Simulated assay, not measured.
Amino acid sequence: MKILIMPDSFKGSLSAKKAAKVLEKSFSQVFPSAAIDLLPVGDGGEGTLDALSQNIAMKEVWQTVSGWDGRPFSMRYMQFQDQAFFEMADLVGLPMFSKEQRRPLDILTIGLGELILQLQAGGIKKIYIGVGGSATVDGGIGLAAGLGYRFYDKEDQLLSPIGRNLAKIAKIDDTNVPELTAEIYAVTDVKNVLCGESGASVVFGPQKGLKSEEIAATDQALKQVYNLVDDGLVNIPGSGAGGGLAAGIVGFAKGKIVHGIDFVLDVLDFDQRAQDADFIIVGEGKMDQQSMAGKAPVGIAQRAPKKTTVLAICGSVDQQVLDFQAYGIAACFPIIGQPGSLNEALEKAEINLERTGVNVARLINNARSKCFD
């Protein structure tokens, strides 16, 4: 029997690699002779780079850029031949800020554009940017400023490239933008568009700290800016990822949007590795409506061979999500065993995951045994 273990990270508690190791321990106890293949994944959100680096020999490099507060910041990227991979979340990731510190309209992302230019100058031909897990809603104007764009208000005053100034932008100057010769890709973990009811401000703004009275105004400001850039971008699937960074990569850096989990599965040669798998075990911190929109567990399930059974083991499961089979997942098992606080759940994630993994493995073993009686 072959089991492919492919969790995403359990945010706030376990990395994808650690979760895969825990599940391997669980299933090995019940199936000691099974071929267990670990393939931790990411879907464009934070942790994607770490997941890729576990499976591909990439060189880790650190480069100094402008940080979220304008001060020098050491930003990492991974290099493979003439390709580079980095994550927005390494510069402005939501976990970097406490709830009291979250100010999505006041955080700078200039360093992302600076890093693109540095990589291009170093001979990199393809640049992949994971845009999930950010603490910002700036529509990509920070990255644009790092590339050399300048933003002005009606009085021709230079504006700081932060989300709070989106509504003030009346003119965009590209005089200082060099030729972009590298191919640039926004690797997105969601398919939300930039504006509207399923847009960056409305859907993701609150979790980043956007106040209720700021949501509609920010959504309108994003529309206003992209009327100046390219109004067609607001309806492109994935353009709302990263607080609108994905739209900015297309509009300001002539880049393209790629769906994160499909990109990762292609890089990891998933179709070949899953060809003879009997079971694929997927998982993430919380299975909810966003998961159903194509995040890692569902993306994997939809590409799995039809003969392979896909099971999900997650930190928790939203009560509104019930029809897992419609998305290719046979069953979903939450690991929380008893009522408690969020902190308790995070602290006990490894113990709970191992216990649940063993129980799922025993269920499989029992069912298989009865089938062959």
Rank of each mutant, 00 (worst) to 15 (best):
Val229Asn: 01
Gly243Tyr: 00
Pro161Ser: 15
Thr181Lys: 14
Ser201Asn: 04
Ala247Lys: 06
Ser160Tyr: 04
Gly199Ser: 09
Gly244Cys: 11
Ala216Trp: 05
Asp230Lys: 05
Asp189Val: 12
Asp231Asn: 10
Gln207Gly: 10
Leu159Pro: 04
Tyr226Ala: 03
Glu183Phe: 10
Ala182Asn: 12
Lys171Leu: 13
Gly238Asn: 00
Thr188Phe: 14
Leu194Ala: 07
Glu197Phe: 11
Leu222Phe: 08
Ile184Tyr: 06
Pro161Gln: 11
Ala186Phe: 09
Ile169Glu: 01
Thr218Phe: 02
Pro178Glu: 04
Ile162Asn: 00
Val234Ile: 11
Pro161Tyr: 02
Ala247Trp: 03
Ser239Gly: 11
Val203Phe: 12
Asp219Gln: 02
Thr181Met: 07
Gly163Leu: 03
Gly209Tyr: 01
Gly242Ser: 06
Ala186Val: 01
Ser198Phe: 05
Gln224Arg: 09
Pro237Ser: 11
Gly205Ser: 11
Leu159Phe: 12
Asp173Lys: 08
Gln220Leu: 12
Ile172Pro: 01
Val225Lys: 00
Leu210Trp: 04
Cys195Pro: 12
Asp173Phe: 03
Ala186Ile: 03
Gln207Glu: 10
Val202Glu: 12
Leu180Thr: 05
Phe204Gly: 10
Leu210Val: 10
Glu213Tyr: 06
Ile184Arg: 06
Leu222Trp: 07
Ile162Gln: 07
